[in-house]
């Protein structure tokens, strides 16, 4: 039952070919996939180990000001890359707020994008889960669901996407480079993850064999470096997934917000870009009234999927906090407790 092929191709083309068969899946560091296999949640017939593929482990700062991050770059390496931290501080803060040091040392950038939900019913093989078994039903819907989605959920699935990393990335218009059977293409990260609708088993727009080879942040994303934060509320100070998180980035000129970027984590099946809220902030002064209005707009469509109405209120407060802290300026170095409310003062908020 748990026998599977294991192949370790040496070129991207070989990898794509090897993964194009039914039941094949890519293996990078396996920090999520191996747990899923051991737990009987995933049963791949073939693991295509991509860790030896050449050229995917580099961070390249391109002449146009953008950065291209190979899919095999380790989370920890990226988060400690000094130039990256300077240019994209909220992304580094999000990375360092996730998992544990050991996991960050192993986990890859591409793998982080592809991690699965932490919905307990997805992991609990005997439970009904439409992700695992389309049409089986969703035991989370009437189950223990205080941490489930409040935005974009459907009756078929109320799971959330667990990544911290993806939240500021989606806010900063990150682009994913994909190698597939028909060559290379690019998609906005915001479009990579899908909302569940009636097909929660289809979590991304990737086709069979598609391999994420790189992630790009555009040069424009650097414009927010002076006012960018990631704030994450969790049930212990470290090594816990977000109850709710927010990435806020502001471009402030002459005391006015010229452009705002805002995304939420832990609220939906994908990192949730709050574009309407961003619009409301453009051209206004960076003050609490404006931030509260943005928060209200960001969560206007939210509704509880279970015992989780508190997340709607919490998410609004986190949006206000993240915007407030971002407007106060990016700290000169990443706080000792990255993403934690306890890493920054709240005096100016209260």
């Amino acid at each position: 039952m748990m026998n599977f092929d294991y192949v370790r191709p040496l070129t991207v083309a070989e990898a794509v070919a090897a993964a194009s068969e039914k039941g094949a899946t890519y293996l990078a560091s396996g920090t999520n996939l191996l747990d899923l296999m051991k737990g009987g949640v995933c049963h791949p017939r073939r693991l295509v180990d991509v860790t030896r593929l050449p050229g995917l482990g580099r961070v390249e700062y391109l002449a146009d000001g953008s950065v291209r991050i190979g899919a095999l770059v380790r989370n920890a390496d990226l988060a400690h890359d000094a130039e990256f931290v300077r240019a994209f501080p909220s992304v580094a803060e999000a990375l360092l707020s996730g998992a544990s040091a050991q996991l960050r040392n192993a986990a890859t950038v591409g793998g982080n994008l592809m991690q699965r939900t932490r919905c307990a019913y997805f992991y609990d093989a005997p439970s009904a889960c439409n992700k695992r078994w389309p049409g089986a039903g969703c035991d989370a819907r009437q189950g223990e669901n205080r941490l489930h989605a409040v935005l974009g959920w459907s009756e078929a699935c109320i799971a959330t996407h667990p990544s911290d990393f993806c939240v500021p990335l989606v806010a900063l218009d990150a682009v994913v480079e994909i190698e597939g059977k028909s060559g290379r293409r690019e998609v906005a990260l915001e479009a990579l993850h899908r909302l569940p609708g009636d097909t929660p088993e289809r979590e991304t727009l990737l086709d069979r064999g598609d391999l994420i080879v790189a992630l790009r942040l555009p040069a424009e994303a650097r414009a927010f470096a002076a006012h960018a934060r990631y704030i994450k509320v969790r049930e212990r100070t470290s090594y816990a997934f977000a109850v709710v998180s927010a990435a806020a980035s502001l471009r402030i000129e002459q005391g006015t917000i010229r452009e705002a970027r805002l995304a939420l984590g832990g609220v939906a099946a994908k990192p949730w870009r709050a574009r309407d809220a961003e619009q409301s902030l453009a051209g206004v002064a960076p003050d609490v009234a404006g931030f509260r209005e943005a928060a209200r707009i960001a969560l206007a469509d939210a509704k509880p999927s279970g015992d989780n109405a508190f997340k709607i209120e919490l998410a609004q407060r986190i949006v206000v906090r993240a915007l407030t802290l971002a407007s106060a300026g990016t700290p000169t170095r990443i706080p000792a407790l990255p993403g934690s409310p306890f890493s920054s003062g709240v005096r100016h908020v209260a």
């Binding site: 609990d124 035991d139 223990e144």
Partner: peptide, 25 residues
Amino acid sequence: AVMDHRSGRILNANLAEYHIPVNAD
């Protein structure tokens, strides 16, 4: 320990989700 009120199965039977204090706590 979070137990599903219908199945009686414990949903967080692992050290990632059964929270005890970490050093930072």
